[in-house]
């Protein structure tokens, strides 16, 4: 394409973005925008899929029938989110199984939070309350993302995530109001999950490589630090309400700013887990790879059978 034409298309594209007109799959979009979206949406899809694993770790040990059913429903929702999100990735011309291979071969990332182990029943509460709570902070603005299919998928995902967050908080509340052993279980779990939950918003704005461009394209609407602050401001009063202590000695409400000040995140730990050296990085990817490899004969059989049936139908007609 002529250079001038391309520039005109790019200007027209940015103009649409600036006027809040949604970009749809068949519309022109710059390659970098397409690549950024493929990266972000597939990472999001992978997170939903890998995110099944830490909860599956407790589904067979859920303490009663109701909790077992709710946890199953939640895991099912997550697989469903993965499915819509992979479909959104496919509208950008990427293939679902190729993107899954990127995950399995370590070429694509997923949310680092799922590389932390789930060690007690209280962790099912924390995953809902904190992890899904942080995810909602990130995802609500994505309902207004400039790319139509992603924005629409996020509307449904956010509704379900908000239910997940509430059920997580309900688990934690039950424990916090329970026996001393249960309260201790909740506090111990909060101590482990609080900082990793804050890390879910990514590096500080000054160190974030993708934020500025993503905001110009209106893929992202708030910076990492803004979202993290919103999460802290929303969550601290909830912890106070149920009598759990946030494990941060620097946490304090700042009357002047109207926000909570909080301590420094351990960025070494953040990068360690991002780079693949967390507790469960290896287990999670290995589990997904194994699922794909063990299922290869099933997928092959389904394809061969579909082919046979198509041939038979042809003969009949």
């Amino acid at each position: 394409m002529e250079k001038e034409n391309l520039e005109a298309l790019d200007r027209n594209f940015q103009d649409k973005i600036d006027r809040e007109i949604r970009i749809e799959p068949k519309d022109y979009m710059p390659d970098a925008y397409r690549k950024t979206l493929i990266r972000q949406i597939s990472q999001h899809a992978h997170s939903e899929i890998v995110g099944q694993l830490p909860e599956a770790n407790w589904v067979t040990r859920a303490p009663n029938l109701r909790r077992k059913a709710v946890l199953l429903a939640k895991i099912q929702d997550e697989a469903g989110h993965g499915l819509y999100l992979y479909s959104a990735v496919e509208t950008l011309g990427a293939d679902r199984e190729d993107t899954i291979d990127d995950l399995n071969e370590g070429r694509a990332k997923y949310s680092s939070i799922f590389n932390y182990p789930t060690l007690s029943w209280a962790d099912m509460g924390m995953v809902g309350w904190l992890v899904d709570g942080a995810a909602i902070m990130n995802q609500v603005p994505l309902c207004r993302c400039s790319y139509g299919p992603y924005a629409r998928a996020m509307v449904r995902v956010c509704k379900e995530e908000s239910f997940h967050q509430r059920q997580g908080f309900e688990i934690v509340t039950q424990l916090a109001n329970g026996t001393p052993e249960q309260k201790e279980m909740a506090q111990e779990s909060l101590n482990r999950w609080w900082w990793p939950a804050l890390m879910m918003f990514g590096p500080n704005d000054a160190d974030s490589t993708h934020t500025a461009q993503s905001m110009a394209w209106k893929i992202k609407r708030n910076t990492n630090d803004e979202l993290r602050q919103m999460f802290v401001d929303a969550t601290v009063p909830q912890a106070d309400l149920i009598g759990l202590k946030i494990p941060d000695k620097d946490l304090k409400f700042n009357e002047e700013t109207g926000h909570y000040d909080f301590g420094e995140i351990d960025w070494d730990e953040f990068w360690q887990v991002v780079k693949g050296y967390g507790h469960c990085n290896n287990e999670r990817v290995t589990a997904r790879k194994k699922a794909k490899e063990d299922g290869a004969w099933v997928r092959e059989a389904a394809n061969v059978y579909a082919e046979k049936r198509a041939q038979r139908n042809k003969k009949v007609s």
Partner: peptide
């Protein structure tokens, strides 16, 4: 949960 041969079967 999370170990099915395809995503549709996980669901």
């Amino acid at each position: 949960c999370g170990h099915g041969p395809i995503l549709e079967e996980d669901i």
